[in-house]
């Protein structure tokens, strides 16, 4: 059931912050070279999640900041994640009211499209800088991330669902 039809208690800024700390931790784990393509980008996933569900508190500015952090952590060109994250945050925001009422599996499809777009942007930047295409397995992580969308969404709203109706 989509989040917008349920009675939920408000999310604190601290919870959003902690969720990003966790996402960063997962992204910074020492992945093996062979599996690095399959590692879903949890920061991107959470950016979509919070833009979708808390558009007032979380927006493009935060997406940009997190992108910068990811760039430095990975030793990439400064700005590639920032650009990709800003754009997916914007696209989510522009259709937020529609997407927020979709069931989770449809949201997962949209997430897949957004994550692929983010990766394509980064790929494009690298190609413009003179790198060579590194094969389609580059996009595998997004596929995995899209599969993780429904469980992730359920997990996140479990926190919000607690003991709300009693007070009404």
């Amino acid at each position: 059931m989509p989040i917008s039809r349920q009675m939920l208690r408000p999310v604190g800024g601290g919870f959003i912050f902690m969720s990003f700390i966790c996402a960063m931790l997962i992204n910074l784990l020492p992945w093996q070279v062979t599996s690095v393509n399959f590692a879903p980008d949890f920061v991107a996933l959470l950016i979509i999640y919070w833009t979708l569900n808390q558009p007032r508190r979380f927006g493009i500015a935060w997406a940009f900041t997190l992108g910068l952090l990811m760039d430095v952590a990975d030793g990439n060109l400064l700005g590639q994640h920032a650009l990709a994250y800003s754009i997916i945050a914007y696209l989510t925001l522009s259709r937020q009211r529609q997407i927020a009422v979709f069931p989770f599996w449809q949201q997962a499809l949209i997430t897949l499209a957004l994550l692929l777009l983010a990766q394509s942007i980064m790929l494009l930047i690298h190609l413009l800088m003179g790198a060579q295409f590194i094969g389609w397995s580059y996009f595998a992580g997004s596929l995995l991330a899209a599969f993780l969308w429904p469980p992730l969404s359920n997990l996140m709203i479990m926190y919000q669902r607690k003991d709300v109706p009693d007070e009404l």
Binding site: G59, A63, L77, L78, Q80, L83, A89, M129
Partner: peptide, 25 residues
């Protein structure tokens, strides 16, 4: 109500990102 227009915001941040990219590269 949506606050400042998302489109202007994304344009600002995209420009900033591209500037960073060029500056860094």
């Amino acid at each position: 109500k949506q606050g400042p227009k998302p489109l202007t915001r994304v344009l600002i941040f995209s420009t900033l990102s591209v500037a960073l990219l060029v500056g860094d590269a």
